[in-house]
């Protein structure tokens, strides 16, 4: 009887530690995915035409490929495409992006909007 109790205890503690570890990993992942110090990189036909801070609100009216046009809005650390001259509007319907590596693509106008990390934030910099 006593042995079983100890075994159960151990199992419980191990389980709890496992849950704690998983929670920590999830929290850390979440932190990595936060959007401080990130850039919004806009490319048209493979050429970078602008790089803007994700943390500053702005609206960009862009002349895109082959006479097309798009409007990209950076607001509250999120990026959306609000208008597009193309017929399919996939980019306009795309959900807002805010994490490293996320992309909105407007294929007809050959525009990509990508979020890139500017590296880890530090208190100071030596150069």
């Amino acid at each position: 009887m006593k042995d079983k109790k100890t075994a159960n205890d151990l199992l419980l503690i191990a389980g709890a530690i496992l849950i704690a570890l998983i929670a920590l990993i999830i929290c850390n992942q979440y932190k990595k995915r936060t959007t401080d110090n990130a850039y919004v990189v806009i490319e048209i036909n493979g050429e970078e035409i602008g790089r803007y801070s994700l943390n500053e609100n702005r609206e960009l009216e862009l002349e895109t490929y082959n006479g097309g046009s798009n409007i990209v809005v950076i607001k509250d650390n999120e990026v959306t495409v609000t208008e597009a001259s193309c017929p399919d509007k996939i980019c306009v319907n795309h959900k807002a992006i805010k994490y490293n590596g996320e992309t909105i693509i407007c294929l007809p106008n050959r525009m990509t909007v990508t979020i890139e990390s500017a590296g880890e934030k530090t208190d100071g910099k030596t150069y």
Partner: peptide
Amino acid sequence: SLGGNIVAVGDKNGKKYTVGIEDPENEGTS
């Protein structure tokens, strides 16, 4: 930070300061 000359006085709420060494190939990143 005097133009990148860093002097860390004390600490930051009990923790050390983080200071990036700039990447010459990629200015602005550490």
